[in-house]
Design a protein around this nucleic acid. Structure first.
Lengths: 119, 119
DNA sequence: TCGAACGTTGACACTAATGTCAATGTCAAG
DNA sequence: CTTGACATTGACATTAGTGTCAACGTTCGA
């Protein structure tokens, strides 16, 4: 599919799709006329990227995680120790964020359960 | 305590402490000389704020959540429906982020468990 | 064939969070 | 009294993620 269709399906502006490609998060083939051509699984990929960016993960970090989040049924990956270490760090950062968010979500829940709503 | 001490204890630059105050996230008394004076629980508050900002929550949203995350053993809160609704939205946004992050963390875990580390 | 709709790249601008610096005031210690 | 550490405010710069627009090429239907 072309960029407009991908944009329509994902709700992500074409501007951003090109930006993500610039950042190495998204890939595309080029047609003869220079138009980008995306495969169907690009839709899922874009949602994944959006979710992470919305959650405050910078594109550079998402880039590190890419091998993990695409093509999940790929052949056995072979990676260098430094890559493994980076991924492990990213994972523990994610854990910290998750804990923090969960704590605050629970705080909101508690607050709302205690609160009296006027009106 | 003064801003320098709070900065030292939290590791957050004084610049940001003032910024957070500007955004209404942090409060302080003023001494006669104009210096900010913080209470001890400011340390916890600042960590809370940092965690949320690191997790990609914009200051304006944190501002909405403030009543929930400070003074948690306060008297029964009485709030207007619009506030309750905002909080509920914030909560479901948090839930989405948490789910997304957890999914990706698990993807990293899977990947690492499948991977062969060279070297 | 012409115009709308879509694609390309590149440039400029904005916001939020943050760094940095300047000009200045305060205070404690030598 | 002076110096150095710390405080103040205000201005300007930067980065990441976006929006927007210009200038231009492509495709397709009337």
């Amino acid at each position: 599919m072309r960029i407009g269709e991908l944009s329509a399906e994902t709700g992500v502006p074409t501007r951003l799709l090109r930006y993500y490609e610039d950042q190495g998060l998204l890939s595309s083939q080029r047609r003869d006329n220079g138009y980008r051509e995306y495969s169907d699984d690009a839709v899922g990929r874009v949602s994944q990227i959006r979710g992470l960016i919305d959650a405050g993960i910078p594109t550079a970090v998402i880039f590190d995680m890419l091998p993990c989040i695409v093509n999940t049924s790929a052949p056995l990956p072979v990676i260098e120790p430094s890559v493994a270490q980076t991924l492990d760090e990213r994972r523990s950062q994610l854990d910290k964020r998750i804990e923090c968010l969960a704590r605050n979500r629970d705080a909101i829940t508690d607050y709302l359960s205690r609160a009296t709503i006027t009106g």
